[in-house]
Every structure is written in C-alpha cells, then in structure tokens.
Design a protein around this nucleic acid. Sequence first.
DNA 1: CCTCACTGAGTACGCTGTACGAAGTAACTG
DNA 2: CAGTTACTTCGTACAGCGTACTCAGTGAGG
Lengths: 251, 251
Amino acid sequence: MVQEYSGSGDPAKSLELLWGIQAKPTRGPKPALTVGRIVTAALRIADAEGLAAMSIRRVADELGVGAMTLYRYVPGKGELIDVMLDTVYRELPLREVDGDWRAKLDEVARESREMYLKHPWLLQVAVSRPPLGPGVMAKYEYELSAVEGIGLTDVEMDAAVALVNGYVHGAVRSAVEAAQVIRSSGITDKEWWEAHEPLLDKIGDTKKFPLASRVGTTVGQEFDAPYDSSHAFEFGLARVLDGIAALLKDR
Amino acid sequence: MVQEYSGSGDPAKSLELLWGIQAKPTRGPKPALTVGRIVTAALRIADAEGLAAMSIRRVADELGVGAMTLYRYVPGKGELIDVMLDTVYRELPLREVDGDWRAKLDEVARESREMYLKHPWLLQVAVSRPPLGPGVMAKYEYELSAVEGIGLTDVEMDAAVALVNGYVHGAVRSAVEAAQVIRSSGITDKEWWEAHEPLLDKIGDTKKFPLASRVGTTVGQEFDAPYDSSHAFEFGLARVLDGIAALLKDR
DNA sequence: CCTCACTGAGTACGCTGTACGAAGTAACTG
DNA sequence: CAGTTACTTCGTACAGCGTACTCAGTGAGG
C-alpha cells in the first residue's frame, strides 16, 4: 500500500481544524459529535490495528453514526490524519533537560522513539508539509531549542534537527516492521534465513556475496537473541550526535 | 494512504520469482507474457505516476491483457513490488571507488540518492524483510564492502550501512515530497507560509514559538530560492560520516 | 409559528485486490 | 488419429475503500 498523505486537503481548512477555530453555528440541531471524539476514536483504531484499519466507515461505526456524518466535522481523511498527528505530538512530554545540546538532542530522540513505539502508524504517515498545528509547532520549537545558541545557522539548526528526526524515524521503523513481520508471520528472522539457506546456497549466495551472507547471518542471530533492541538505536544515535559534534568542533 | 508492504506473500514463491527459477511448463498454450514484461510495464507506470497509480488493472491495461492474467505470472501485488524493487536495485552502477571508507560510503549514498530521485515510488515501499533477490544482495554486498576491514564488528558494519541508507532515505524523501507538493498544488513553500502568516500571527505564533517561526521562515525562503538542493543533502551526509569517523577514531 | 440554517445518513459511483470458474489451446498418450 | 490433460486467458463477482449527492428531520431566531 502507498503511504497515507497528510495535508492533502485545503490547508486553510486544516489549520482551522487544528487550532479549533470554527465559527460555531447557532441555528439547527446540536451536533452529536465533536472533532475531538472523532480523533480519539480514530487514534484508538490506528494504535490498536494500524492505519490500514482506520477507515472512515470504521471510525463511524465505532462512534455509532453513519459514515457520511464524519464529513460534517472533518473535510476528509487526509485532514483527519493531520489532526491525529498533531494530537499525538501535543501529548509529548517535551521535558526540559539540564545539560548541553547533546543531552537535549538525546532527549528529543528518546521522546520521538517512544512516540513511534506507542503509535506505530505514525511511521506510515508522510509528513511532507507538516500540518502546522499546536502540537507540531511545539515539538519543532522544542527541538530547535536544543541546538539554539551553539553556533549553527538557522538552516543548519533545521538540518540538524531533521537529521536526528530522520534517524529516529528510520531506526524505529526498521525495528517495528521487523517485529510486525515476526508477529504476523510467526517466523523469526533467524528461522526465515535458515529456511531459505538451501535455496540461497544453490544460487551461490556465499560465493557471490560473501560479506552479505556473513554479516546477514550474524545480524540475524543477534536480532533474535533476547536482545535489547535499544542497543542498535543507541549506537546509531551516538554516531549522529558525534557527527554534529564534529561540525561544532570545526568552528 | 498506508505504505505498500513488500513481501507479504509466500517467501518461497517470491524467491523463485526473484531469481527466475520457474519450472517451465511443457503442455498447454505458450504464455503471452513474461514476468519481465509485467515488471517493465509496472515500473513505467510507477516511475511516471507514482505507486498509487500502479494498480493490477492498470498494468494489465498497459499490456493489453485482462487483469486476472497477471496472476498467472505473479502471486500478487506484494510480490510484484518485490520484483520491481529488486529490478531497480539491479540497475545500480555500484561503481568501484578508489579511496578510503569515507569515499566509498559517499558513493553509496550518492547512488542511493540518484536511485530515489529516479524512482520516487521507492520511498513509499516499506522494506522490512527485504526481498533477497540478486539486486538487493548485490547492493548490500557493495555497501558492506565500503566498511569492511576498517575495524568494525559485523553488527556495526550493518548498523553503519543502515545509518547511511536511513539518512539518504529520509533526506531524499523530504526533498521529493516538498517538490511534489509544490507541483501538485502550484504553491511554493514560501507562498504557503506567507498565505498563512496572518492566521498564524493571530494564533500567537511568533510569541509562543519564536524559534520555530524564525527558523521556519529562513528555511522556507532558502528552499524557494534557486537553490542547489544537494546542499542540504551534503550537509547531513557529512554529519553522518563524521559520526562514523568519530567511532573509528576512538578505537 | 414560520423560516431556514444546520445535522444526520442512505444511496451510489468508481476504484481497489483477488477468488472462482468457464472456455479455449496445445502437447503428450493410447 | 482421437482423447486426455496441463495450461492459458479472462469475465464475473465480492468485499472493501473514499466521498459526492440528496433529502428528511431538527431546533433556534425573527
């Protein structure tokens, strides 16, 4: 399936939605729903069953209303995802950390990681032009504050933050998807490699691709061992932060 | 939309498909198609119109056959994407670079970037358990060869390669998506920010989120300027490689 | 009380992946 | 040679999707 695009609708409508600026109607019957209730239901489904299960009809069922009713509150599915995303962002702790930029960026990465683990469907949402809701803005502000005043230009600050975010996104995605594949197929990585070793051998795997088969086997075994998956995360994060540190040292 | 998952079908069937191991039938009419022709057509559609446009019916139309005909050659859409992916990987130059690990990893990143720019739909394919076709294996082997023998453990080698790949994936995705949004909406980042400045001001943007609005504005202007988009890529890549360099230095 | 903005939701359209089964083709067997 | 049988193509169908359109019912303002 293709990625779900956030912000595919009218940006102005999205912003109104995100900031809760809606001219309240005076006439007519009281609305039975609120955007908040819809978002809560949608989040519950997405958290539990993934983004694919979160269809408009499904959310409507959950709320005991007709499918088309949701369109009275939300312009479309894209905008609903926008609000879901901003809502999740708004619930981040954004803890203030005493220490240097490195300690702060570390916390930024850690909070993002927790968020993705809690809401794995976020990994499937493409945030090209992020919905500038209060949650997204607050998160961005928090991230930038970690690298403010350490000698980077504005563009570099954005790039550094993007670098960390990109790393976390990629790292968590690998881990989550590996876990999901194991859960859905009931086959661990090791078992999978072992099952296909005969075929791969016949192809000439170990001869043509000596490094790939050596490293692949090692990594596969490592991953299946009762293994603290945050090890790999820490390793990569340290490298990313080292890279930023090296840049600062040059100045 | 949700991400398209590769390799959702029977792994054994996928492998047979990827390596072209198919027991040829003797009886019955000659097949009108080949897997190769199907993949070529699918790639043409995906490259030109994105992964969302690449439906089974669309590919079948392109080939002038009924939709269900494709299922005689390919178990399902997931496996088709597997083969598409491996095919693209197989076309990578994988240039041998004279120089140290850094020069080699640089080339690895550059080739990946070119690949993503040429086949943007790859950014939407989730490669959790990569289809171990010849292309994927060759690429992995090539990547590992860049960091072989420089003092990393097998697991670290894999992590280093994953780090670079993850960075490239994230960086190119941001750039491509930004460009796609501009093309589809006809609005540049700058125009978008300017259009919503009044609303954001009313909300108290600049007061509540001083860093975000300052940096956001700067970055927006920078991006719209006739700007070599590889600048940002180079910056981030340099940071990633610096990080790996720092690890090697500690040893 | 009437008006009319507003809400809820049934129906329908075009799209998706793919299971099933019927019909046609060509090579092997008797 | 005919008969069998493996194999191909593909029309039909099903369950699901997002959402446009339409219309009946509601309830506050004039």
